[in-house]
Design a protein around this nucleic acid. Structure first.
Lengths: 248, 248
DNA sequence: CGTTAACTTGACGGCCCTCAAGAGAGGTGG
DNA sequence: CCACCTCTCTTGAGGGCCGTCAAGTTAACG
């Protein structure tokens, strides 16, 4: 959750600059590469491939070649079950890495759909891997990024397995708020890129329940909802929903 | 799911033997190490540390030093939310790797509890990592194992987000059945190592619902339940529950 | 301005949770 | 070996949360 906070403070200058080039917040994060190594990384990475809103960055079943770092934009990742049910497994924003699920089988296992016009950096995994063999700190960092994804998924499992609708939505809003804040946007006022249905799919709820719960939060004065614009008025109350809740 | 099937057939002899030593089904899987590299791997890995039923292999918050390969036995992994709710994130059996969630923060993020007397191989991550830097095939394999964990978690998210109690339990039983089969045990008759409550926690259900649903499956002639002994009588019907279900 | 997709709100019903009681299994000590 | 205790499991009854169905409203886009 708090994992990305210190990027600006901790990264050395040459890295910070390169990172601001490619926006690889998640890949470059706290790793002290030499200028040479950075340059090599830069030559590997394809700069800025645009993806229009609604388009797929990749789809389940396609052969795996590259990881993608989101330079700007917003994506959803989702898996489709055999009988056609969609489960959104995550929402991803600038600086985050996508496609790691595909390493295991050399095929993508989920769809990645842009929810707004976006740009990604393509990072051919074979070359990244090769470089990682020579640069221990990069290798370790890749392990860390993948591990973080596992931890994140466990958090979602906790949410889906244990929480009620109100708690899920509160957790969702607070998580979004935090991630926007990290990126320098307002944490108290932001635009949802996804539909109620996509939120519901992510949270294991129906779109009507999402809508109703948002309205309820608004009635209680926790938030203000204007279509997809969310204003968080009382984040403490939202947090209280998460901790108090019906545990003892 | 089917990922471990071909171990015996595909691994070269020297690897097969070394693997049968340490039972590292998941780590050694399909990777063609040289005998020298295998030996180095063997010197890194601590052979056979016993863990008694009910004991913790590690707990959330403990500093991370090693991954663990289960040599024999059965574990549950679970996260505890701030307000004390437990979510079982997975059940792990012989040959599987545990602890990858801890790489991201250098602290374990979940508890690993033995559900029967077990033995694990401890693999100091720093040394594994170092070796992986020299042995690309090992490096890639670590990425694959972690990626597989992510894919598995996505499957659980689909289950928790979209499925009804009957479907969840059917999926759970079929998954266990398959994993036992891969290890040479009966796929149609096996002993549950976990309580109804732990099954419920994993599946996002209460223990009463688990119990009721098992009874229902028994009444329908799909399975036979005798306390923790499960006999699968009609696996096709269970599979049908998963595909038919209330999708169109 | 018309069409479509997205959202809101209400009414109702069903699935699963909650509470409760009792049965069964496994371990310990007498 | 049996009595006893505890943990686990089963089963029932009732209620609540959320899904389902439906209708109407708003927003978005050509």
């Amino acid at each position: 959750m708090i994992q990305n906070i210190q990027i600006r403070e901790l990264t050395p200058r040459h890295l910070r600059q390169s990172c601001s080039n490619c926006s690889l917040r998640e890949l470059c994060l706290p790793i002290g590469l030499t200028p040479d190594e950075m340059q090599e990384l830069d030559t590997i990475i394809t700069q800025a491939r645009p993806i229009k809103r609604g388009e797929a960055l990749y789809r389940a079943g396609e052969p795996f070649k590259s990881l993608f770092a989101i330079r700007v934009g917003f994506f959803k990742a989702s898996v489709i079950s055999e009988d056609g049910r969609e489960q959104v497994t995550g929402f991803h924003m600038s600086g985050e890495l996508m496609g790691m699920d595909a390493i295991s089988s050399d095929f993508h296992t989920c769809d990645a759909i842009a929810l707004e016009d976006s740009e990604v950096c393509e990072m051919p995994f074979g070359e990244i891997e090769e470089l990682a063999g020579d640069v221990p700190i990069l290798q370790r960092h890749l392990y860390k990024v993948m591990s973080r994804e596992i931890v994140r998924d466990h958090g979602v499992m906790l949410l889906l397995g244990n929480m009620k609708a109100e708690e899920r939505l509160a957790a969702f809003l607070l998580n979004l708020s935090q991630r926007f804040a990290i990126r320098g946007y307002s944490s108290s006022s932001f635009h949802l890129r996804m539909t109620r249905e996509e939120i519901g799919s992510y949270l294991g709820l129906k779109l009507e329940t999402v809508s109703r719960t948002l309205s309820k939060f608004q009635d209680q004065g926790f938030i203000k909802v204007q279509n997809r614009l969310i204003e968080i008025i009382d984040s403490d109350s939202l947090k209280k929903l998460l901790n108090n809740c019906h545990g003892e």
